[in-house]
Nucleic acid binder design. Structure first.
Lengths: 230, 230
DNA sequence: CAGAAATTTGACCAGTTGGAAAAAACGTTA
DNA sequence: TAACGTTTTTTCCAACTGGTCAAATTTCTG
């Protein structure tokens, strides 16, 4: 599976390399380069996911990363570059659960585990989720193309799988696209609207129980709905 | 129902009035004041809902409103003030559907119409939804307090209503809070992730049909789930 | 139409922003 | 340890930011 591509501005091969080796062969990355880049990306994820691209400043990121602005710019010469690195990384892990949906499987365990994996993502990578949400709110200027091609193709494919389950009478006939949207919406909500969820549930119900409650609820909702059988 | 309060910075009574009448009685608003303020709020909603508070600039808003920056600042002396006006207005209309859920009603029509009203909101006020989403992503710095008091109280109240339906055996026993979250998530998704929905559905399915499809799907999902009865 | 009040404009300002440049400090290895 | 490449810091800049102010213009009211 090729890594998701995000519209890239020219950056000598996109390697984000320090402007070290000026003309010859670009030498392998040093230990410090790898480490610092990691620290920077971590800090940038924090800031970008909260403030969005425009709202975030290099200074904020540099401070969060514990280094000076010019020092940060030594590793990533442009703000855009950091953002796009994060976006691309993110899209890759974010779509993994959808890719795993299997056509040969039975719908019940298959949907159940998709729900659960998406919910785990929201729990374990909430900043990535918010980064993506921020990009969506801005109209997806940097990923629109890939949404219309790669993502659409992937969803079309999985929609077919779901339709297969309907044809086999294993699940009720309904719109597979809106089903996928609903799963995305309900699971990502716990990352993107985390503050609201916490505020409404109150101090006490904020911990690990929250995750299990949500998982159980969503499983029941998607499989059985609210009305009692018969 | 008192209007939602948002943390306000001091602005001579919060009336957002032009700095006209300096000391005496503050004179009624002129026609021009009403009109221009409306234009400004419209433009600001556009920009803030896309870029978030920090990402938006007064210049952008002024240009979208077709006036100069100092002219805009004549009507709203601070950027914060515009943003908070929009937030407060928004929270009020946004929560109206939830307030309307009635304890005496039957769950089926009651939930159905709540779903539909929330979905209509996403269709008719998508920018307001994105404004709110942006505020959430930033950690709700301006509304956290009201989420923890007003909103929590309202949701607690409606959760009780839903629990009443469960006690009466009219709907399956489940977590009312997560049920409410799910309705918020699924309906608001169509406003907040509009670009993605459009991209995945393709050019053809972008129109008015989309809304009806979503409404029908969600109704079925929430009432019956995916598994065939029996 | 005169005068007052309301509105708009242009010039300006201090602080912030993304980024460039060069020099200084550091680390590695022959 | 000298020489070289790497990393960090200092200094700087032009554009942009939110906001002020006084003067010029327009609108309203008697």
């Amino acid at each position: 599976m090729p890594p998701i591509k995000v519209k890239m501005l020219e950056t000598e091969g996109g390697k984000g390399g320090a402007k070290a080796a000026p003309s010859k062969r670009p030498r392998a990355q040093t230990r410090i380069q790898r480490e610092k880049q990691e620290v920077i990306l971590e800090a940038a994820l924090d800031v970008f996911s909260r403030e969005g691209f425009r709202g975030a400043t290099i200074d904020q990121i540099a401070e969060a990363a514990g280094m000076s602005k010019p020092n940060l710019l030594y590793y990533f010469p442009r703000k855009e570059e950091i953002y796009q690195r994060l976006l691309a990384e993110m899209l890759d892990i974010w779509l993994a659960p959808l890719r795993e949906i299997d056509s040969v499987g039975d719908p019940v365990p298959e949907l159940r585990s998709y729900l659960r994996r998406k919910l785990e993502m929201s729990r374990d990578y909430p900043r990535q989720s918010r980064l993506f949400a921020n990009e969506m709110l801005q109209g997806a200027p940097r990923v629109l193309e890939m949404l219309e091609t790669d993502l659409k193709a992937l969803v079309d494919d999985k929609a077919k799988v779901i339709e297969g389950w309907m044809d086999a009478g294993k699940i009720v006939r309904t719109d597979p696209y809106h089903l996928i949207f609903s799963i995305w919406a309900t699971t990502q909500h716990y990352a993107d609207f985390d503050v609201q969820v916490r505020a409404v549930l109150g101090k006490d119900r904020g911990g690990e129980g929250r995750f299990e409650d949500a998982a159980r609820f969503l499983e029941n909702l998607f499989l059985h709905g609210l009305l009692p059988k018969q």
